[in-house]
Design a protein around this nucleic acid. Sequence first.
RNA 1: GCACCCGUAGCUCAAUUGGAUAGAGCAUCUGCCUCCGGCGCAGAAGGUUAUAGGUUCAACUCCUAUCGGGUGCACCA
Length: 597
Amino acid sequence: MNLLNELRNLFEPVLQSIAPDAAKVPEYAAMVKAVADAKNGDYQANFAMPLAKVLGQKPQELAKAIVDRVLPNEMLESAVVAGPGFINLKLKASWLAEQVQAIAGDERLGVAPVTTPRTFVIDLSGPNVAKPLHVGHLRSTIIGDSLVRILRFLGHTVIGDNHLGDWGTQFGILIHGYKHLRDDAAYHKDSVRELARLYVLIRQMAKASDEEDEGTGEIMEACRRETAKLHAGDAENTALWNEFMPSCLEMLRPIYERLGVKIDVAHGESFYNPMLAGVVEDLLNKGVAVESNGAIVVPNAKGVVPKETEMAKEEPPALIRKRDGAFTYTTTDLATIRYRMETWKPDAMLYVVDARQALHFKTLYANARRWGYDVELEHVQFGSILGKDKRPLKTRDGGTIELDVLLDEATNRAKQKYEVNSAERRERGQDVPELTATEMANLANIVGIGAVKYADLSNHRTTDYIFDYDKMLATEGNTATYMQYAYARCRSILRKAEYLRSAAKLHLGELAERNLALQLLKFEETLVDAGDEYLPHLIAGYLWDLAKALSTFYEACPVLTAETPELKASRLLLVDLTGRTIQHALSLLGIQTVERM
RNA sequence: GCACCCGUAGCUCAAUUGGAUAGAGCAUCUGCCUCCGGCGCAGAAGGUUAUAGGUUCAACUCCUAUCGGGUGCACCA
């Protein structure tokens, strides 16, 4: 049920007959929007003002004329002209009730699949194997995962692709460590653990021995030599790479499970490695790339390769083969685009990557187009996670925060918080269920990780945000916990009632009931916007409005003790549908719910 | 040096992509537990949207300049 579309369709014939330029009718129809201020009604139409200007009429008079042509209507209770020419629309409660009744019986909660499904490849997470995931991977992973869920639910075909960093220096580190420092017994017993130990050990040794910059000393140099040998096809190192890879992937698995993130494919850099020479050759043959200083580059947007002395001023070219013959990440990215186009023929490729790489993707996309790929290529960029000092989030001693450690902290705090709250509730004489250790761990996990995800996804993607455990786990305000609590309350009511969904007849008498119903009907238009703009935070905003509408309803409208059985059934229907909508909206953000908390 | 992003209530963030009197949550202040789960609800106060111009019926939003903060600039990914 898309209220916006219904209203736009209502006005379209009138606009068609009035607008001098028929091509602009969709543009005018799109000017029907939700009201900025609820006291003006439910929706507002803003097209009378621009239209009046084109027609040389007075906007208020034109608006009145348009209103006269759509009224009376079964949907509308009123349509009134206000201010400079706004048309304020208020929907009939009886009509709203019918629509809510209809979506309550629908598994998709009234959200119709898109009429023209597209195929998306979403590039997300992108960790380096052999290293633990850290905060830097959090946003890409959960924003990407949320977009996969949203677009898929809307009816698109979505391939989530984890572009692993599995061909870089980290393998040189592992190979060097394995050759010189391994504990054979430990390796045979648990290769995953031993490789992890070696990786950390080498990094620590390098850090301790290097003077200033990490990575300039002998140890890292030795690791780089091993990497170079691997890339050159050295038999021993290639064999080790093949041996290590399963263990490296195994190291990543638990964190994705913990986050509840499933990614369809994981083609890393190594996967594309055999294709790189062919890519460069093709680019040279097609005249897209040229030789410069012994390297192969794609000229910049101006079509030139600046001299080295001007490099600082000019936009640089894209390097696709270094002087020493090695390929770059640009080469890999171009190979990836070609592979994805040939394999899935997508309509769009979304790269959920840090905003700092904006320039790289801008030039990459331009070069892909020059190469001949006409497809929507979008850098779905996001801002940084900051500490309370407004600097990028780090550990106390300035190190990188591992994701596991961060999630441990969140779940521990969720558990503590729950224990404090249950103690308070018992003191008030409320009935609080005793949880087993397993139930407790499960609850802490759902609440803690939900809090981390929601704190991230409820912010606009592109802006930096400050990471704050206290705020994200707060029980008041726009947090996952508040939504989960709202859901648990709905479930609690339904447990205590005899309720048959198909038998309930909805009646919207109270204002709180009407507002809740209207909010429930806005689910689809919210998802459409979130999917169009790749903005999960719109769903979080929707959830917040919905949960607030529920709380107001909850206070104002007794359900179990309603005056008549009919009213009780009607309200149970609202509670049921609201609970399901909260649960579903949360699931699109990758967040779970619990029946009791 | 060049380019990109950001600047909104004391704090943390929104603003349906150009719409009406810029909204929420914390924190502050006032009320509400004999009542379906108080991890809740109702309300008050808080603003020259960094600054100065411009575009138009209408600007937080678009353009120009200035100030302040961040990020990025081929042989690392």
